[in-house]
Design a binder for these strands. Structure first.
Length: 860
RNA sequence: GCCGAUGUGGCGAAAUGGCAGACGCAACGGACUUAAAAUCCGUUGGGCUUAAAAGGCCCGUGUGGGUUCGAGUCCCGCCAUCGGCACCA
């Protein structure tokens, strides 16, 4: 307590209700939010006020339009919420409450993305089952969210670790597994429509031996996104490349559609660009090079077939399958040594540390198909097996990497593109004019590409080709706390379980520790693993992304036990009209979810091919020191302490008042105090404290007409708040409400009608306070049943406006003008103004610009 | 290196090409109070002019140019900070 030495005074002058627990109420509350916030939360819960009925249910009103507003659901960590989490949640809650007042059926759900590594790590440390800690963490998160007064439809709460949920995650996996992508129809179809010999080679879920990010410390494989600078994102342990049998999802089949269908989405352009870059489409050609003394050919991918004449050597990735075949005996030892070194390199060494190009000559030569020149074939780890064909034609004159390599190993460099101007052709990578290239000499690059590609195609030497950076999705994890695959193995072949065998529930385990061999922890559950006498279960589990790939669908119909989502519910609610979350999910989550949605759409299970129509990213909230909040900096602020001191409404309001939603901004307790003062002013506009220290309705509140200026400010506020909520500019909406309150604070009479209207405007932002005051005003019905007020422009315009008079662009004078004044009248009034006359000193103005109702600029 | 975002008072910020700094914080002054807290009222970008005030003038939105009667806003170049990607042929 701050007033340690003044307890007697403290007790004598404070109302009784504030002192029953003086240790917890550090200071006097500016308004008694603690008296009613939990009361309203209870009322909302008891009355199921925010439950949205589905089509076909009793209270469903088909006449209303729908609005689906969704938050990225959280991973319930042990630490609880910090003030960054509820930023987006507050924004969506304001929109949800606003849309309800506007007469929409609003779907506003919340749930838990609860599978994941931290719970498993905790289990390893403590021996507590992840299910238990998950349950506890969820309870903590949920109580924190409820304390903020969010209007979630808790009847739709979902939890990705609930068998009733992941049963359908597994079901969707089966659909993916039992589908293939038909390039003719450009969509997924049931595997039964595939006419080839080996369906397993085209399934959208398949098994492959792939080099993966193996982290010995965690005893698991990590996805690329979980590896940061060659170290594990969790724990910072070293990560090495190692081939392993893994489940993959064929997301690359959808690369084109994932790019194209971004077009019509209302997403920030930056996020669309990020996704496009991630998918990384590039157009070019594949060209076949003959190998001297061998039948095999090497296929390369290039975006610049017009530089073919400049290809003075070739490079294969060290892991390329033809390396063994073509390497000459003299070079074999050197090549083998290089390949071994490359294989041992971690990602860190391969990228960050390898500023110097390395490579070795195979001893073999290829024939350049354009000029039949013999060129040496090298291997080097700057060529990646996973991109294109894993082999390149090296054109050192017009590619920085090839140039660096050629210079280091003294390979020939030949210019074949003449840059515009007098730039040096060597090292020029842009478009120019083809030179030293008989077939295309003199052509600009774009045309040269077209012509030489056609030339190659005619001769069967190459063809147009498109490549993507996007790789197939590594979909398995060697962990315990995830969805088991509904797959069994028999005679070294995988096959799917029947839908009636779902869900496949993870077996209870005593010991969650990684085996360390790369074999998943599920291998320890011997009985569970044995599916039948000759079949065993798949031991991997799905990655955490799986559950979040379709949760927005489940929210439409969370209790359905017949289908992953009921058809009518899905049709009615989808798509998500507004999706709010952090930029950290800009690529992966959003890409994966779009991919699943498209598969389900192709197979006819959902009605839209894109899940999220409008996307908004909230900015990060920094600590009071302007640094990112983190345990180590000790600058984490929990909503609990803020709410205890200032109340949930002040917390919500400050989250939104800090600045634009998308922006990064630092927390400030002073700022919370500021909005809390504003809410107290609202309270005292309607309530006053009597002699006994009790709050009662203020006698100033009366059923009076509004003065003209009051009418104007009321309608200006309705207009501004409405428009600002629509554009998610909550900070300026709040500013306008402050202006409103400031204007009414000193009025003799507080017009009750204006107060009611204002409370409706305030309701989405500060639902507890506005509900309480609505009740205190004895206004009819519940505030949540009201309809959003409209405004009338006629109250906003005045008869007279103040206009600015400028001379040469500088403000020199102001004058009042009727809004009806014509331009000519305004001009005359300005020119005859004494101050302007004085400034002009008899000179004739050269030009007069009149902007009606705004200003006059006189150019002298 | 490439791509993207952002640079405005002491601080968070606001401004359809038309009065830069609304609103809030902090600070200062006043009212109320024995006093303080709370509350209410007022001042608050920098400089010059003035005994003081009123008033007037000049400068000011990262930086240098440009377009315009007029630029925080539009165009070109540069700098800084943050975020993403990073041998993708």
């Amino acid at each position: 307590m701050r007033v340690a030495n003044s307890k007697s005074i403290f007790f004598s002058c404070f109302p009784a209700f504030l002192i029953h627990n003086p240790m917890s109420s550090e200071r006097r509350k500016p308004y008694p939010f603690d008296q009613f916030e939990s009361k309203w939360q209870r009322i909302w819960e008891d009355r199921q006020l925010f439950h949205a009925p589905n089509p076909g249910e009793k209270k469903f009103d088909a006449a209303k339009p729908k609005f689906y507003v969704l938050d990225m659901f959280p991973y319930p960590s042990g630490a609880g919420l910090h003030v960054g989490h509820p930023e987006g949640y507050t924004a969506t809650d304001i929109v949800a409450r606003y849309k309800r007042l506007r007469g929409f059926n609003v779907l506003h759900p919340m749930g838990w993305d609860a599978f994941g590594l931290p719970a498993e790590q905790y289990a390893i440390k403590t021996g507590q089952h992840p299910e238990l800690t998950t349950r506890e963490n969820i309870a903590k998160f949920k109580s924190q969210l409820k304390a903020i007064g969010f209007s979630y439809d808790w009847a739709r709460e979902i939890n990705t670790t609930d068998p009733r949920y992941f049963k359908w995650t597994q079901w969707i996996f089966l659909k993916i597994y039992n589908s293939w992508f038909n390039p003719k129809t450009n969509k997924a179809e049931p595997i039964s429509t595939y006419r080839g010999d080996d369906p397993d080679s085209v399934r959208l879920a398949y098994v492959a031996e792939v080099p993966v990010n193996w982290c010995p410390e965690l005893g698991t494989v990590l996805a690329n996104e979980e590896v940061v600078d060659g170290k594990s994102e969790v724990g910072g342990f070293p990560v090495v490349r190692r081939p392993m049998r893994q489940w993959m999802l064929r997301i690359t089949a959808y690369a084109e559609r994932l790019i194209d269908e971004l077009e019509d989405l209302d997403w920030p352009p930056g996020i669309k660009l990020l996704q496009r870059n991630w998918i990384g489409k590039s157009e070019g050609a594949e060209i076949d090079f003959k190998i001297d003394n061998h039948d095999a050919r090497i296929r390369v991918f290039t975006t610049r077939p017009d530089t073919l004449y400049g290809a003075t050597y070739m490079v294969l990735a060290p892991e390329h399958s033809l390396v063994d075949l073509i390497t000459t005996n003299e070079q074999r030892a050197e090549v083998r040594a290089y390949r071994e070194r490359a294989a041992r390199k971690s990602d860190l060494e391969r990228t960050e540390l390898s500023k110097e190009k390395t490579g070795v000559f195979t001893g073999a030569h290829a024939i350049n198909p354009a000029n039949n020149e013999e060129i040496p074939i090298w291997i080097a780890d700057y060529v990646l097996l996973g991109y294109g064909t894993g082999a390149i034609q090296a054109v050192p004159a017009h590619d920085e990497r090839d140039l660096e390599f050629a210079r280091k190993f003294d390979l020939p460099i030949r210019a074949v593109v003449q840059p515009p101007g007098d730039e040096d052709p060597i090292g020029f990578v842009g478009d120019g004019i083809a030179i030293n290239s008989p077939i295309i000499d003199g052509l600009p690059s774009r045309e040269a590409i077209r012509k030489i590609t056609a030339w190659l195609e005619e001769r069967g030497l190459g063809k147009r080709a498109i490549n993507y950076k996007l790789r197939d999705w590594l979909f398995s994890r060697q962990r315990y706390w995830g969805e088991p695959f509904p797959i069994v193995w028999q005679d070294r072949h995988h096959r799917s379980l029947g839908e009636d065998e779902l869900p496949v529930v993870p077996p209870p385990l005593e010991d969650y520790k990684p085996t360390g061999t790369g074999e998943p922890p599920l291998a320890k559950a011997k009985d569970w693993v044995r599916y039948s006498d000759n079949a065993t279960r798949e031991l991997n589990v799905m990655p955490q992304w799986a559950g979040s790939c379709w949760y927005f669908l489940r929210f439409c119909d969370p209790l359905n036990d017949k289908r992953f989502v009921g058809q009518d519910a899905e049709k009615y609610w989808m798509n998500v009209d507004l999706y709010v979350g952090g930029t950290e999910h800009a690529v992966l989550h959003l890409l994966y979810a779009r991919f699943w949605q498209k598969v389900l759409f192709d197979l006819g299970y959902v009605s839209t091919s894109e899940p999220f129509q409008r996307l908004v990213n909230q900015g990060i909230i920094l600590g009071e020191d302007g640094q990112k909040m983190s345990k180590s900096r000790g600058n984490i602020i929990s909503p609990d302490e803020v709410i205890a001191q200032y109340g949930a409404d002040a917390f919500r309001l400050y989250e939104m008042f800090m600045g634009p939603l998308e922006q990064m901004k630092p927390w400030s307790m002073r700022g919370v105090e500021g909005v809390s003062r504003f809410l107290a002013r609202v309270w005292r506009l309607i309530m006053r404290e009597n002699q006994a220290g009790e709050w009662e309705l203020s006698p100033a509140v009366d059923d009076v007409d509004l003065a003209k200026n009051e009418q104007k400010i009321l309608h200006a506020t309705i207009k501004k708040v409405t428009e600002d909520i629509e554009s998610l500019s909550f900070n300026t909406a709040i500013s306008q409400m402050m202006i409103f309150v400031n204007a009414f604070t000193n009025a003799e009479k507080t017009p009750v009608s204006a107060m009611r209207t204002f409370l409706i405007l305030l309701n989405p932002f500060a639902p507890h306070l506005s509900s309480e005051l609505w009740e205190k005003l004895k206004a009819p019905g519940d505030i949540t049943d009201q309809s959003w007020p409209g405004y009338d422009e006629k109250f906003l315009v005045e008869d007279e406006v103040e206009m600015v008079l400028q001379v040469n662009g500088k403000v020199r004078e102001r004058m009042k003008m009727s809004i009806l004044a014509s331009e000519e009248e305004i001009k005359q009034a300005a020119l005859t103004n004494p101050r302007i006359q004085e400034l002009l000193a008899g000179k004739t103005p050269r030009k007069v610009i009149v902007v009606p109702q705004k200003l006059v600029n006189i150019v002298a």
